[in-house]
Each structure stands twice: as structure tokens, then as C-alpha cells.
């Protein structure tokens, strides 16, 4: 749902729900997901409703995702890294 104005930024490779994609150095995880065409990043632990990043400044907790296997991380506050594994957060997290 977002497009990049400039394409020259330095790229990093990552996966979102197992699919290889690229993002730019300096992108937050939430920005990377939205730039890759994802419409939502999680489903709620209550009704299962789909939610997407809302505030992009760390206060709303709508951008919770699983990063490198760790659940419920704030995607808008974490920058992408080469090789990062990002997964949609489906409902409640697990305890493993």
C-alpha cells in the first residue's frame, strides 16, 4: 500500500512470512512490510481482526510482529537487518 519515492537506497534482504523480499537500510520493520504490499501485520488475540501499523511511533502496538522467531515485537521501532525473518503475528503469541 506504499511506494518508494527513491529506488537508490542500499538494500537488505529479508523474509516476510517466508517470502524473500528486500527493504532499504534505515527502514523500520513496519515500513518494510507496508512497502512490500502487506495490508496487515497481525490478527488480534481477541476477535482475530486484522490490524496494520497505525501510529508508527511506538505508542499504539498495532504493528506487533514476530521477528527472528520472537513474538510481539514493535515493528515500527526496530530497523531491518540483512537476513531478518519477519512473520505476521497471528493472535496470541506462544510460550515456547
Amino acid at each position: 500500500m506504499l511506494r518508494r519515492l527513491l529506488e537508490e537506497g542500499q538494500r537488505v534482504r529479508l523474509t516476510i512470512d517466508g517470502k524473500p523480499v528486500t527493504a532499504c537500510v534505515g527502514d523500520s520493520v513496519a515500513a518494510a512490510m507496508l512497502s512490500c504490499g502487506l495490508r496487515y501485520c497481525r490478527t488480534t488475540p481477541i476477535s482475530g481482526e486484522k490490524r496494520a501499523p497505525y501510529c508508527m511511533m511506538g505508542v499504539c502496538f498495532e504493528c506487533l510482529v514476530t521477528i527472528d522467531g520472537i513474538n510481539n515485537r514493535q515493528g515500527c521501532l526496530i530497523e531491518v537487518r540483512e537476513g531478518m525473518r519477519i512473520d505476521t503475528q497471528l493472535g496470541r503469541r506462544t510460550v515456547e
Binding site: M1, L2, R3, R4, L5, L6, G9, C24, G26, D27, S28, A31, L34, S35, R39, Y40, K50, R51, A52, P53, Y54, C55, M56, M57, C76
Partner: peptide
């Protein structure tokens, strides 16, 4: 999904040029 704050979209513009 698809509803965001204007500030959020502005952050995406500033930080990532999106």
C-alpha cells in the same frame, strides 16, 4: 488496515521516503 494516522504516514515519508 489501511487506516493510519497522518503522523504515521508522515513518519514513513521522512524515514523511508514512502
Amino acid at each position: 488496515p489501511g487506516v493510519m494516522t497522518a503522523g504515521a504516514l508522515q513518519t514513513l515519508l521522512k524515514s523511508s521516503g514512502l
